[in-house]
């Protein structure tokens, strides 16, 4: 039993990503979409908080949103994996429920 968490807001203006990280359980996945993809920037003020919580939680990014925002691969945390919309669907199906951190 696991949960897919989605976060769609920048962590620099909104606490959703940090709150989400604190409520994840082992086996869960976080998918950053829309402005949420900024949460996977390397060297940012939230990067340590993100990485500390990824021991048992997988981190994904929605590729279209990453490219739209001009974020280059080398700027992204190495733990994050990029998926496209079909991968988003797979993540929803693989997990028992989806929780949107709006």
């Amino acid at each position: 039993m696991s949960t897919l968490h989605t976060v769609n807001k920048s962590p620099f203006t909104n606490g959703s990503l940090l709150s989400c990280l604190k409520h994840c359980r082992p086996g869960d996945a976080i998918l950053l979409i829309e402005d949420g993809v900024y949460g996977a920037l390397k060297g940012s003020t939230v990067a340590d908080a993100v990485c500390e919580n990824l021991a048992d939680v997988r981190l994904f990014l929605l590729g279209g949103d990453v490219r739209a925002r001009g974020i280059e691969d080398e700027k992204i945390l190495s733990q994050a994996r990029t998926v496209e919309y079909d991968g988003y669907v797979d993540l929803v199906v693989e997990h028992d429920r989806t929780q949107s951190w709006l």
Binding site: N8, I33, E34, E84, Y85, D86, Y88, V89, D90, V92
Partner: peptide, 19 residues
């Protein structure tokens, strides 16, 4: 907001995958 766009692309992909 981007929400209605993201939802649209998600639904299209879900249908394409046979859901």
């Amino acid at each position: 907001h981007q929400a209605a766009d993201t939802a649209y692309h998600f639904v299209k992909s879900a249908l394409a995958k046979g859901h």
